[in-house]
């Protein structure tokens, strides 16, 4: 009985992914049964599509750039609040976490209104700024949670031995927190890479991959969409498995 339930639910969970991947190999122009194939023509089609490849590179750039900034800011703030006695520290923590409690749509809408009022143009930069806003709280929370007393002792030892503040941070704190920093970075990259609504509202001519996929969707079902969807899935799953095998495995030991 329980196994039948688990199996049925697994069927439900995998049904769309299986359909997506299977019909990406369709030899025909409609991704619905009956299945003809397998054929790799849609993969060739997708990889030869300049707009898609450009959107993919844009997404990668925005994801890596915005995540690097989010992690740098998040680490710096976590270091400030965990290692220094500052007034109103609860208020600063709440402020930094606040964007997490609001829909992406609202973050994007607010930024869009400001950008338009100021008469600035929309670009990958504005989308990147939006992605830093949503990833900063996550990076801060992950890194702040893993700042413990054991690094503090090492930091004191380094200071006693004459290291200046920059060296303490870069040569002691950062390496000791590497797993948390990497986890925050990877998580930010996957969230930004896949984010739609902020990127949609805040870009215009150069767009990210989810926005490009969205505009392709308007012309209806197509095996091209299956192919690009399967490729994105493959990339994300590889990233997740890599993270699982490296960062989290180490942490559990």
């Amino acid at each position: 009985m329980p196994w039948a339930y688990a199996l049925a639910l697994f069927g439900f969970i995998y049904l769309p992914v299986a359909t997506l991947v299977l019909f990406s190999f369709q030899n025909g122009s409609l991704p619905v049964p009956p299945f003809n194939g397998p054929s790799l023509r849609w993969y060739g089609d997708v990889l030869g599509d300049d707009r898609l490849v450009e959107a993919l590179l844009n997404s990668l750039m925005v994801a890596l750039g915005s995540s690097a900034i989010a992690v740098a800011l998040g680490f710096s703030a976590a270091y400030a609040l965990a290692r220094h006695v500052l007034p109103a520290s609860a208020l600063w923590r709440a402020l930094l976490i606040a964007p997490l409690t609001v829909s992406y749509l609202i973050v994007g809408l607010g930024l869009l209104i400001v950008v338009q009022r100021l008469g600035l143009g929309l670009s990958l930069w504005t989308a990147g700024i939006g992605h830093v806003v949503i990833n900063l709280p996550i990076a801060f929370a992950i890194i702040y949670a893993s700042m413990g007393a054991q690094q503090q002792n090492a930091e004191r030892a380094a200071r006693d031995l004459g290291a200046d503040e920059a060296r303490v941070v870069l040569l002691v704190t950062v390496p000791m927190l590497a797993p948390a920093i990497l986890a925050a970075f990877f998580l930010s990259v996957t969230l930004s890479w896949d984010e739609f609504i902020i990127a949609f509202l805040l870009t215009r001519f150069d767009v990210t991959l989810p926005v490009e996929i969205w505009s392709m969707l308007r012309s209806g079902l197509s095996p091209r969409l299956n192919a690009i969807g399967s490729l994105v899935f493959l990339v994300s799953v590889s990233a997740v498995l890599l993270l699982e095998l490296t960062v989290f495995r180490k942490r559990r030991r």
């Binding site: 969970i13 995998y14 769309p16 992914v17 997506l20 996957t190 896949d194 984010e195 739609f196 991959l209 989810p210 996929i213 969205w214 969707l217 969409l225 690009i228 969807g229 994105v232 899935f233 994300s236 799953v237 990233a239 997740v240």
Partner: peptide
Amino acid sequence: LPFWTSYVV
């Protein structure tokens, strides 16, 4: 695992 399918996809 399918959680990591792209959101639009």
